[in-house]
Design a protein around this nucleic acid. Structure first.
Lengths: 356, 356
DNA sequence: TTGAAAGCGCTAACAA
DNA sequence: TTGTTAGCGCTTTCAA
């Protein structure tokens, strides 16, 4: 009640001890649920503690024990819904284990990764889930040596020894293209993610393989690189258009790119899927609500996050890879290519998802 | 080199002191950049420290000093891009002040808010930016008393004494409706956010006021409540449709709702903006890339976050409100209402997008 | 079953 | 300018 504002002196374990007429050690034992305390004493201490509104000081505890009950997840762009969903998965699963999740947006910048990792390490956060760390191998090794346990999610890190949880991106690329092929498309463009990112290459490879398997050629003029944003996708589509390339479908490396591509298509006077079909990747929540709804390769971000958390509690071989399956989600953004004769045959953008 | 994996014994300030042949106090002074150290000593200590790969233990420091250099931002849904952008603003501004930002997704659940706040408090994180805390006034007061400084962003908290940084939501609602009115719309529906959230009520009030100012009546049948998601927006649109209400435009309480409404419109056979105009709120990145691009009330999430951070460094009167201006961003989702004859005519021919 | 005492790694008077 | 000495609040042997 007295004291300066915001300076309410917090009760310590000693205050509780004194009040309960026991030692601090006993209070500690009771409050951290260790045994070896008489039931009566236990009850008594508990009462006194809650009476006094005692709150443990995690700093002191962590300093003493040299661990913390917090885990962190580092992602390159918190404004990308896919990562948002991923984070939610991590958080929910961590919570079940009594762990609190800290989220760090690195913006893909090494300096920020550095800052965060330093802060986490020096606060005894020993488990961190990372999506696309750009830090070099040596630096990462330094953190590992210092006691940080990394779990790479979605994207591998420059460090062969840590566990990786990701989707089967290559298969996803194939799935997307096979679907387009089935619809009758032959000229299929691809807007890829940054080639530096492994999954960009994997999806692209799937794209190429499916094409080749169908006896088609891979035309470099039909491939353009982008980043994983709507703006990048729109720009990439325009680039494709500028090249004068002929294509009736595009496989976008993620849903945001696909949305951008749809926008680019519209701005060049094309209609989806009548004039052009578009397939995305991720199946973010939004995909269901674009106009038309987006056909996409579904991966379950929430499940991926949850799976990553499992890793820390189950003994895992170093260097292990956990590959999650993907599946095609057919919605309204794909259809038959425009054929001169059959100008009006698709009329069905149902709201139902057809899962394959 | 020796030791168990992940158990590399970290050098302490004492190790450095011994090696540099000075006292721990001196090392501390050097490493935390305090003055009162001879330049020569300073250099020497610095060298030794980096030589030894010394890393400060933040836990020990924070415990001793009883503050930390971390701030936290608590948001209800990390998968909503608006909050993602907001967080980015906070983070960037905090970084400039040497503060590291922790992100906490409360999912709008009081229990999670509780968990996070406890963890933060007991780790000496004294500044937290909150968006729509649901915790009750007394609980919040408890944290305040314990030394947590809250800055409410976007949405006020149940605590009159903390600073609030938000947009002028009421004016935004008016802006949206005035625009629609200008286009010639008279039957304008509104899909609001949860009425529990203050800004839902503010935007709705703006909507109503603009209607009344134009001499129109507010028709309750044209207002439906939703949440701030695409799914909610789609559902709300369908509800409007089910009611058989006649309307030519809808003002959605946020962009995600607007996207959902566009989807709902499409699934009921309406075209935007030909048959129906839609206005959103927020101007998230996505708004530029929907089909058609979304007309919306723009608020700058990044700026809002940054402004909130300023608050903690500048002395601010308790209970102060900082209201940020909003502005209308006209894109392609709004246009003139369909005239009965035109509507009939279009049913027979395919249509192209309107001009701007 | 309980307590005394010694840390965990750092900072901050107060002396020297 | 530098060092000594107490803590910060909790955990954890080791005795009792």
């Amino acid at each position: 009640m007295a004291g300066r504002p915001g300076t309410a002196p917090r009760a310590t374990i000693y205050d509780v001890a004194k009040e309960a007429d026991v030692s601090a050690a006993t209070v500690s034992r009771v409050l951290s649920g260790r045994d070896g305390v008489a039931p009566a004493t236990r009850e008594h201490v508990k009462n006194i503690a809650s009476m006094m509104g005692y709150r443990a000081n995690a700093l002191a505890r962590d300093l003493s024990v040299r661990t913390s009950n917090m885990v962190a997840v580092m992602i390159p762009d918190i404004a990308n819904p896919f990562f948002g969903e991923l984070v939610k998965g991590v958080q929910a699963a961590a919570l079940e284990q009594g762990l609190t999740t800290l989220i760090c947006d690195t913006a893909g910048e090494a300096s920020l990764e550095f800052t965060y990792l330093d802060g986490l390490l020096s606060r005894q956060v020993t488990h961190v889930f990372v999506v696309g760390l750009t830090l070099d191998r040596a630096t990462v090794q330094g953190y590992t040596d210092a006691g940080v346990n990394f779990v790479a999610v979605d994207r591998p890190m420059d460090n062969a020894s840590s566990v990786l949880v990701r989707s089967d991106n290559r298969a996803g690329g194939q799935l997307a293209v096979q679907h387009l092929l089935q619809q009758g498309h032959r000229r299929i463009a691809h807007i890829s993610g940054p080639p530096k990112v492994q999954l960009s290459r994997d999806r692209r490879r799937g794209y190429q393989e499916a094409l080749i398997a169908a006896g088609l050629e891979v035309d470099p003029a039909l491939i353009v690189e982008s980043d994983f944003t709507e703006g990048g996708g729109a720009e990439a589509f325009l680039e494709l258009d500028r090249r004068g390339a002929k294509f009736t479908a595009v496989f976008a490396a993620d849903d945001l790119i696909a949305v951008g591509a749809m926008s680019g298509a519209a701005s060049t006077g094309r209609r989806v899927p009548r004039d052009i079909s578009i397939v995305g990747f991720d199946d973010i929540l939004l995909a269901r609500y674009t106009t038309p709804p987006l056909t996409t390769v579904g991966q379950n971000a929430v499940a991926m996050g949850a799976r990553a958390v499992q890793v820390i509690s189950s003994p895992v071989t170093k260097g292990r890879r956990i590959i999650l399956p993907v599946s095609l989600v057919v919605r309204g953004s794909t259809g038959a290519p425009p054929s001169p004769s059959a100008a009006r045959q698709r009329r069905t953008h149902g709201t139902h998802d057809r899962r394959h």
